Each structure stands twice: as structure tokens, then as C-alpha cells.
Simulated assay, not measured.
Amino acid sequence: MAEQNNEEMLNAMASVQEVKVGDLVKGEVLTVDDNKQAIVGIIGAGVEGVIPLKELSTIPVDNVTDIVNIGDVIDLVVISEIGKDKENGSYLLSKRRVDAKKVWEDIEKAFEAGEIIEAPVTDVVKGGLVIDAGVRGFVPASMVEDHFVSDFEDYKGKTLAYKIIEIEPSENRLILSHRAVVEVEKEAAKKELMEKIGAGDVVEGTVARLTNFGAFIDLGGVDGLVHVSEISYSHVDKPEDALTVGDKVTVKVLSIDPEKDRISLSIKETLPGPWDNIEERAAVDSILEGTVNRLTSFGAFVEVLPGVEGLVHISQISHKHIATPHEALQEGQVVTVKVLDVSEENKRIGLSIKALEEKEEDEVVVEETYEMPEESTGFTLGDVIGNDLKED
């Protein structure tokens, strides 16, 4: 009987696992000490160990019970031996390091497979973004976007997709790029859009960037250019005078060059034409205010509506005799004019300044000769020579 008891005791002792630093063990949570550490029984070893709060998780937590509760069985690694006579356990254990090892293994597999991973941005530091992928990762500023970003504060808390650029678990080094993901997505979107749209199509977009020569419009991951001359029928000096980044706009596709990845757009082509219903908006005998845009030898071109110029023939500038329009007018001058005739079909308006002025009694009309203008104006020779060479 005594021999049997001794044999059972020896078998029990033999079955007890010897615990060494670096071992992977399983532990059952026995108690939680003031929510700052967990006391566990190491299964198969007959000894206890302690898990400090900081060794419970790869992410910061305030309480032990945020991660484990009494009765949970968890995987642990032995960090060090703290003495058989120490209170609350004989070994210092870590769940965090076991979890981190598994995370590194998963990340290495994703890296080898060329997979994209997602993780939240936990902090913004000088030089880039800190992310939590189960382990700490870093995104250099140059790898955040495919364009310059002056302030990264808005990225904090956002979950982004990344391509793994560099990984070294032994040094806890993980370098990621969100820019690489953005570039691939944009390239795919560009290819799809190029196949979907064509010249003449009218589409919606958002003003993405403004330059001194035009506005770049985001059509859904692909940018097209609206040249400053295509923003409005009215003259626009600078794109920012008419547009703001973030504006939603309707644009017409003028042309697509797949080889150069170039899309030319127009905003003004989606707007009512400046000559539409002109016979109602600038009816004969109506009085309008306009700006002298150009002076020629035969008269002055006055913009009376956005994109609409009318001709004040030299004979209609003044009751007084003038040899050239420059004697009475200058470019940029604001004048009041009377509409003499208008044609929507021919895009032509005849105007008069002198019709709104009183003629002095001693003024006489002098017959004049005119030279044919060198430019195409939309006006006939008769219009240029003038039909009003006699006093009103």
C-alpha cells in the first residue's frame, strides 16, 4: 500500500511541468488584484504567476478586466522568475508578448502575399503617423498621401488602408504606406472612368485644386482640368475669383487623352449660352450699361452682358466729329448704351452712345470714309460703314 502511494506521488511529481523563462504556457486567471494585475495558475505546473496590467494587451488599457476575467484560460510567455517566496506568484508573465508574436506572424504573411492591411491612426508625430496594427507601425509623412498635406491632425483616430513597405519583428520595425494604396485605387478608378466617359459627356465633380491657369476637378478619383478660359463666359482673371476648393460643379468633357492621362473639361459649356434669348435680354431700344473691351478704327466693342459684346460704330459714339474712337473712349471705361438692333442668329448687337446724349445746336454732321476692319467681327461691311451718317 505504501509502495502504491509513493508511486502515485512520483507520477504526480513527474507530470508537473517545469517552468523556465521564455516558455509558452497556459494560465487560468485566479484573481484580479486591484484591477492592476492578474494572478494566474500555470496549468500543469502547480505554480502561480502574475500578469502586470502593461503586459496584458498590445493596446493601452486602464483595467485588467478590460482584457481578462476570473476563470479565463489564456496563452502566456514567462518573462522572468520572481522567487518562490514572492507574494502573488512565482513568475512574471505576459499575454501582450504572445499576442504581439502572433500579430507579427500575421503581418509577415500579409507582407509576403502583398496584401493590404487596415489599422487606426493612434498618434500624429513629427515626420508622420503612428498606427496600431496590433503592434506599433509608422507611416512617414511622404507616404501618407499622393499630394502634400500640411497638417495631419485630422488623421488621428481614422482607420486607413496600408501597403507594408518594411518589416523587422526583431527590431519592432513596421513601415507602412497609405500613399501606395491611394495610387493603386486612383489608377484603377482612372482606368474605369476613361472607359466610361467620352468627349461631350456632362458629369459631376468637385474642385480639388486651383492653379493660376485653371482648376483641377475630381471626377471620382481622377482629376480633369478646366482651363481658366473655360470657367465662365465672363472674363476670369484667376480661378479663385470664381471657384473654391470643395465646390461641386457640373462639367462637360471636351477631350480625353489616355496616353497622357489628360482630361480637358469645361464649366461654361454646361451653362446657358451668352447669346441665348438675347433678343429678349437686350431688346431693341433697351438701355444697358457695359464696359469698353476693345477699340478699333471703326468703333468700340462693349460688353453689355457676360460674354456678350456689341458694337458701337464710330458714328454712334458722339454727335461731335471724331477721327478715331480713342478720342472719346478708352478700354475699361463703363458706358451707357442704347440697343439699336440685335440678332441672336448672327450673335450681333448694334449699340449707340450718342442716342442717349443731347445734340448741341451748332453741331454738324461731317461725311466720313471708313476702312474695312482687319478682323472678323460678325458685322457686315454695311454695319461697319454705318447706316447713320446723317443727323438724328
Rank of each mutant, 00 (worst) to 15 (best):
D132G: 06
T65K: 12
I231E: 00
K36N: 11
G214W: 02
N212Q: 14
G382E: 10
D388N: 12
G290I: 05
M143V: 00
P60E: 13
S142G: 14
E357P: 11
E108V: 04
L10I: 12
Q316W: 03
V121I: 14
K196H: 13
D132T: 04
I314L: 10
F216D: 00
I385S: 05
M13L: 13
V312M: 08
L219S: 03
G46Y: 03
E367C: 09
L329D: 00
V78Y: 01
E279I: 06
A180P: 00
K191M: 13
P373E: 08
T122W: 00
L311Q: 00
I167A: 14
V21T: 15
L356W: 10
S57E: 03
V304Y: 00
S376A: 14
R348V: 02
L193Y: 05
E357L: 15
E145V: 03
V284F: 06
A119T: 03
V125S: 09
K260D: 12
N35P: 01
L10F: 09
G350M: 11
G44E: 07
S142L: 11
R179S: 06
L56W: 06
L311I: 08
E303I: 02
K196C: 09
D218N: 13
A38E: 03
R179C: 05
G22M: 06
V135Y: 02
G49T: 02
L176E: 02
E166L: 07
A133H: 01
T122G: 03
K268V: 03
T250C: 09
V202Y: 04
L92S: 03
S15L: 12
V29W: 02
K54Q: 12
I70L: 08
K191A: 15
P373I: 06
Q37E: 09
E105D: 14
S318L: 11
P52N: 07
G200P: 06
T122H: 04
Y91N: 01
N63V: 07
V207Y: 02
S232T: 10
I317W: 00
Y162K: 08
E368Y: 04
A189V: 07
F148W: 06
V334L: 09
E18N: 13
G299Y: 00
V304S: 01
P120M: 01
E331H: 01
K320C: 01
M9W: 13
E230H: 07
N346D: 13
H321L: 13
V40C: 08
A355H: 14
E371T: 13
G89N: 02
R97T: 04
E269K: 15
L30C: 07
G224W: 02
S343D: 12
Y370I: 05
E48C: 11
A208L: 06
V16E: 09
V203H: 02
I314D: 00
W275I: 04
T58R: 04
V312C: 08
I117H: 01
I349D: 03
L210P: 01
P239I: 13
M372W: 09
E375P: 04
D85I: 12
A161M: 09
A161V: 07
N6I: 11
L271Y: 08
D146W: 08
V98H: 09
E279D: 11
G220S: 03
